[in-house]
Nucleic acid binder design. Structure first.
Lengths: 349, 349
DNA sequence: CCTCTGTGTGAGATCGATATCATATTTCTG
DNA sequence: CAGAAATATGATATCGATCTCACACAGAGG
């Protein structure tokens, strides 16, 4: 099929010089005669010489590629980060290899292996599991540049760019509590995932600091897709005693929750108050507008790239763990519980 | 930094055989003694031999990579396709290189060049421009496997997987006309993009087939992001004579339009009816639910992969141009125009 | 006992780019 | 004008995996 590409040898031949001289002319290093250089450049141009990045990579041991491994590229959060990373990386002539782990630790490991053997320059990973990460520690030990995005791992000594999950969740739930809610549902990711843990921790802290007993039955796990979240919501709200409020840990789940509630005929915020982690496009178009914990998405990709490039360029600084603050954006999806049992809520007045 | 990886040579040394024998044992071909093979496998295992895909690629001239070039990975449509492609490709041990063209033909060309020199096995491209595509024709001429996604190009003789843009748009606009609208706004992409052209054509056909004169001032161009679409909407609806209905050509623009209309205090569908191309998660949560032209997104990625792999495996069939039908999903965002001048709409009753 | 075939193995070439080294030529310096 | 320094160039090794080739040695058949 594909006719073979023009190689340095072809160029050298056409310019009537050796490969060595041709290489020197093209990459301008060493001594090259002006006239010879001219002929080489000319030949390269007319033959459409492109260079073979694979051969170059073999020579210098690395491909100018970055492996990007989100949980799911369809999540707008990761899509945004991927986009920003792609753009930033362009400046340093790297390309982006994207491979979703699909939140499967096994797949994460395998993909990492496979990209590793491609001599990728570095990785940006949103680790699927908080515990099971010998493979990541291995990377670090071998000195492979690695930046964790969205999810930090204390065990893995590398750079990370995250968000204050615990604080954000706490603020959200505090806000619900301040509005008189005590039965607050939580729809969260698989608890392997560190962000899920952080957000759960924030949820628990908020409840406990207000002396509200934690009811395990209000905590539901869902995959991070709209469809799963719809199911989870329906499950949660089909129980005999319903939550009066709901906190969802990412935007796809928030959307799923909204759709689930609607399908059950429950009105937001009349029947159920909702706060979601991560803002989304239509949060202000829904009726009511949705109150969310916003993350500074736009800052994550660029910072991650900066850190990664520093490592690639040999920085041996101690790991830099950036954690951005979140911001509660109050809109209209929270009100006081309608059928509230007043006695249980002394702080309400 | 990164300590050097285990090479075949190391394995051979450890197993006390030559590189040739080690290679034979690992890839089982040719004659290898049972005992020697055993030792090699053992050594490879214990040393953690991974193989160097770059060296392999140099040898056989290709990297098991596919270049995927969407207009914007943040568009849920492309994110979905990318995800599906990623998953499908995994089965044939290929990885996905994603690089957004950001709808810039120049960038598309450059990225293509740069991925080309990586000896990528094939490309999936959503071409940014309908006209300016010598670079893609070049690829085809050189026999590089290429599948166009979402946007076909008649000039480029290669496989493509698209959707019936013209028909979908026509159906949408016909539906608006059937509901009594005659001043129908259009928010569309840059007209370089073939999908924009197709959808525009459908829009025009619908109008013309009903004898409605086309008013250029109702056609607005926006980039495909929520933000740009908000602006475009506001611009469109700030003109003295407003459209009574709006057709938007992709889901991000639909969302932007909804937000823009809301910001102007225009209610859907009371003041403005809306139909959007491409369905989206929250289309059924908004109030009203949004009527859309749905595309069979889930089918695009898998088919594109199938076609591309066939090419990679040497198929020389004539180009296969798949075009999926669209489906109008009627929800609640269209009603009869409120201030309609009845006289002009004889067909309304 | 001596070919012939089937096994098993290593040496070395190859893929394409690049860096090192050695070898010319100049050109300059004293 | 000798010798040093600068310039220009080509041979060749290298990166790691793979494959061809040639060679060894076994047992089989004559």
């Amino acid at each position: 099929m594909a006719q073979k590409a023009v190689t340095l040898k072809d160029v050298a031949l056409a310019a009537n010089v050796s490969r060595a001289t041709a290489a020197r002319a093209l990459n301008n290093y060493g001594y090259v005669g002006g006239e010879a250089a001219e002929r080489v450049l000319q030949a390269a141009e007319s033959l459409g010489y492109r260079g073979n990045r694979v051969a170059q990579a073999l020579r210098r041991g690395q491909l100018p590629l970055i492996g990007f491994m989100p949980g799911d590229i369809q999540n707008p959060f990761f899509a945004r980060v991927a986009h920003d990373v792609d753009v930033e990386l362009r400046a340093s002539r790297h390309n982006l290899l994207i491979a979703s782990s699909e939140e499967d630790p096994e797949q994460e490991r395998e993909l990492l292996e496979s990209l590793r053997s491609l001599n990728v320059r570095g990785f940006m990973v949103a680790p699927t599991s908080a515990d099971d990460n010998a493979h990541l520690m291995g990377l670090v030990k071998e000195g492979v540049p690695l930046v964790l995005i969205d999810r930090a791992l204390p065990d893995v000594a590398c750079d990370s760019v995250t968000v204050d999950n615990e604080g954000g969740a706490r603020e959200a739930v505090n806000y619900l509590i301040a509005n008189g809610h005590r039965r607050i549902g939580l729809i969260q990711d698989d608890s392997r995932i560190t962000t899920a843990r952080g957000r759960l921790a924030g949820y628990l802290q908020a409840l406990q600091s207000h002396g509200i007993e934690v009811d395990e039955s209000l905590i539901t796990v869902s995959r991070s897709t709209v469809e799963y979240a719809i199911d989870a919501t329906i499950r949660l709200f089909s129980r005999p005693v319903r939550p009066t409020a709901l906190f969802t840990v990412d935007s796809l789940m928030t959307q799923g929750a909204l759709l689930g509630l609607r399908s059950m005929g429950l009105a937001v915020p009349h029947d159920v108050s909702v706060v979601g982690f991560d803002d989304f496009n239509l949060a202000t178009f829904t009726d009511p507008q949705i109150t969310v914990v916003a993350q500074p998405v736009a800052q994550i990709g660029p910072l991650a790239v900066k850190l990664l490039l520093q490592r690639i360029n040999g920085s041996t600084e101690p790991p830099h763990t950036a954690q951005f603050p979140t911001r509660l954006i109050v809109r209209g999806s929270v009100s006081r519980p309608s059928g509230a049992r007043k006695r249980q809520q002394p702080a309400q007045a």
